[in-house]
Every structure is written in C-alpha cells, then in structure tokens.
Amino acid sequence: MISKEEIKQRQAQLDKEPIIYEWEAIYPAIVGKNGKLIRFCIGALPLLIVAILYTWFVVHKEAYITLIPMYIGLGLACYFVYFLQLSDNKCRYQLTQKGVITYTQQNIPESVYGFFRGFAWFGMGVCVVAAVVVGPAVFVGAGAFALMSFSFRNFKPQIDKDNHIFINDIKIFDIYDENHIMFMSKPFFIAAKTRLFYNTLEEKKIILEKLNKILIEPSFARFTSTKEAYQDDFIKNAFKLHNEMYRENQE
C-alpha cells in the first residue's frame, strides 16, 4: 500500500507534468437543487426578519429618525454576507496525465475588495484621530473596531491550490444535475475537492474523453446529485477503508 510520504511526493511532482487540458468554471457556494434557497435563508432571510422587527419597533416608538442608518447598516451587512461568505467560487483546472491541479478563489469583484480596504484605512484613521483627541483609553471600547480595520487593510483575493493525483482504483461520477464530474479513489480521497465543474455540455464531453484516455476506461456512473452518489457501493467501500486506516493510525 502506498504511504502518505509517497502521496505527498507525487502531489509535488504534479506541478511538473505537461497540461493536457485546462478550463475555468464558476460554481455556487452551496451546490445542489436547493442551493439558492439555502443561500437566501442563511444570508438574506435573517436580515429581512431583523428589518421587519426593527421597523415595527420604530413605528411603535415613533423613532423614525433611526430608520435610515439602520437600513444602511442592514444593507452593508447583506453586502458583506453575500460577497464574502456566500459568493460563487471561481476555479481553474489543469488536467495532467497523473492528476488534476485546481486553483480556487471566491468570485468576488475587485470593487468589493477595494471597498473593504478603503473602509479599513478610514477606520484606522478614525482610531488615530480618536486616540489623539481622547487618548489611548479610547481603544478600550474601540479595540475590536481597530483590530478589524487593521486586518482588512491589505484585503486581497485568496487563491487555494490543490493537487489531486490519480491513485489506486478510481471511479468517475457524472453528477449531471449539479454540473460537475467527481472522481474518487480508494482509500485516499477528499470528496469535496475532487469535483470538476464545467460550463457547457461540450466542455463536459471533452473532460470525460480526456479522463477515459488517461485512466484507460475507468469505472463510471451517473447520478443526479452528490447525495445520491454517496449511496454507491464504491464510495461506501472507500469510506470504510478510509475509516479503518484512520483507526489503525490512531492506535
């Protein structure tokens, strides 16, 4: 059985392999049939409930002057949650003879990064002015704000790179309702990071043809969703082997 050290060596060598096919794809933060609904419930729905409750409170107390800043704050909060927590993902794939290299980042417009960098510098300026006028004691109450401003001053896109090697028995899953292809191996696999998203059916056809040539006609199955694919015997056995190896390493 191949060791973890050899796996790491093969992953490192993957960068030197010639690229057979390369493509980019954008996929949602929450993949699945109800992904958009889940994203709305996580992001927009709580803020909408807060807005309704606060509006009722304002009308009841006749404190209408607080509505505008409250709505602005909720709008910024929604902007923050959507773009930084629930934004789509952009992925670049490089298919080689021995595996796939993926570069993943959130699909966030540069204007969003610029906004938060500007907000950070503004916040730091406010803290400096407050410290000069009031004194260092101001950071007792505004320390969290100052720390947040400092951390956002160089806010830039973060690209995650992963090398996935072809190893042991491999099976390819066409998850057609979620627009991605998933390849799994026993027992070394990370299900969430072996998904190959595509933009068009023509692109999907090319990817499958390349994989079939590289892996010499591997096992293949089609499912509507990842959840359904997890019921496949191949994946169940892979999980079983993975868990057995994990227990052996713990002992």
Rank of each mutant, 00 (worst) to 15 (best):
P28R: 04
N34Y: 07
S149P: 00
Y230V: 05
D88P: 01
Y230P: 00
V126T: 13
S111A: 11
E202N: 14
Q11R: 12
P187N: 03
D15F: 08
L14W: 07
E217Q: 13
M70S: 13
S185W: 03
Q94S: 13
T66N: 12
Y113W: 09
V138Q: 04
A51Y: 02
F122M: 11
E248H: 10
Y176M: 09
G123M: 04
F150N: 00
T55I: 11
Q11M: 05
K186D: 08
P46C: 15
Q13K: 05
M245F: 06
E6M: 06
N168R: 08
L95V: 03
I68T: 15
F139Q: 02
Q231N: 11
I52H: 04
I52F: 13
P136G: 14
A144R: 03
W121P: 00
P136Y: 10
S149N: 00
F115E: 05
A144G: 12
M148C: 12
S225V: 03
W23N: 03
P46T: 12
Q9I: 14
V140I: 14
E178N: 06
K205F: 09
M70K: 01
R117W: 00
R247D: 15
K98L: 06
N89Y: 14
A137T: 09
I206Y: 07
G32A: 07
S151I: 00
K227T: 15
L45D: 06
A229E: 02
Q9T: 10
A25C: 09
L241W: 09
Q11K: 10
D174Q: 01
A77G: 08
N179P: 04
H164C: 09
V31Y: 03
I172V: 14
V128H: 00
M182R: 04
I167S: 09
H60K: 12
A29N: 09
L201H: 10
R153C: 06
F183K: 01
T104H: 03
N163W: 02
H60D: 10
W56F: 13
A25V: 00
E178P: 01
T66R: 09
G141L: 07
N179T: 07
E178A: 01
R153K: 14
I159E: 12
E6P: 06
I49P: 06
L67D: 01
K210L: 04
I52R: 10
L84V: 02
A144L: 14
N107R: 01
L45F: 12
Y71R: 05
I7T: 09
N179E: 08
P218A: 08
G43Q: 04
N243D: 13
Q11S: 02
